[in-house]
Design a protein around this nucleic acid. Structure first.
Lengths: 140, 140
DNA sequence: CCGTATCCAAATGGATACTG
DNA sequence: CAGTATCCATTTGGATACGG
């Protein structure tokens, strides 16, 4: 292969054997991959989980930390993640009130994978931009 | 930790060090993680890349293989992936015409990561559904 | 500080019909 | 077969204002 490939083709084939059946499943109405994508594939969930991977954080801190997110979307995203058991919400009865969010064990198990994805994004940023440039030129 | 965790906390911390700066970047207008999420975080890209991970495939075959995708969305998704250099499009001048899609080296390098994510989805399907059930009950 | 509620603009994506 | 084009319903998410 080439420099892009961090895993061997046989590794990938082996890994794929486990998910093939779930990509194409005309026979069933449910698909675990589809489920996870619907949940974690939204605009903010991955960024929030990545941030919470550093450690527990309060609402305001998250709002400042995740670039570009609105108050509403942070709430919506956190509720979704909490609902799916990826994030834990702890309320402290202080004045003014404070709420701390943290990853659950399940959330941590996901963190490893999306961190890998994030690092891939950073590593191949240049490749993608180059490809886009080339593609644009081919269109004329 | 517990049974959910396939990577150690120190592994994650180490991996995180590489992406932290890109999650919260109020200073810059661009974020590689955001970029990749916008591209690969749509409804179909991951499923298409996973499918192409098995090997090159033609348009009709993909349409049948990826459960639930429409003709339009397959076209749109493939164009996006082609544009970003993840998928290669090869036209054969036959009657009727046939077009074969395959992963580029860059696409293969991504495949490893999203396959991991897909396997996580399959592995923790039950955990998520359980969490959702528990959450629903807490609301009453 | 930590939300919720409302409103609204934009993006997403499905159905259908049509072309080379 | 492999698209493209059009139309339209749904979803997403940002702005804003308000409440505990």
């Amino acid at each position: 292969m080439d420099r892009h490939t961090e895993v061997t083709p046989s590794d990938i084939q082996e890994m794929n054997d486990g998910v093939d059946a779930w990509v194409a499943n005309d026979f069933s109405g449910t698909c675990p991959v589809r489920d996870v994508l619907d949940r974690v594939g939204d605009k903010w969930s991955v960024l929030v989980v990545l941030r919470l991977g550093r450690g527990p954080e309060r609402f305001r801190a998250l709002l400042r930390a995740v670039a570009g997110i609105s108050q509403r979307m942070l709430t919506v995203t956190l509720r979704g993640l909490e609902r799916d058991g990826l994030v834990h919400r702890e309320v402290f009865d202080t004045r003014p009130p404070s709420v701390e969010y943290s990853l659950t064990p399940l959330g941590h198990s996901l963190l490893g994978h999306i961190t890998g994805l994030a690092n891939w994004a950073v590593a191949h940023e240049a490749d993608i931009h180059q490809a886009q440039k080339t593609y644009a030129q081919k269109q004329g």
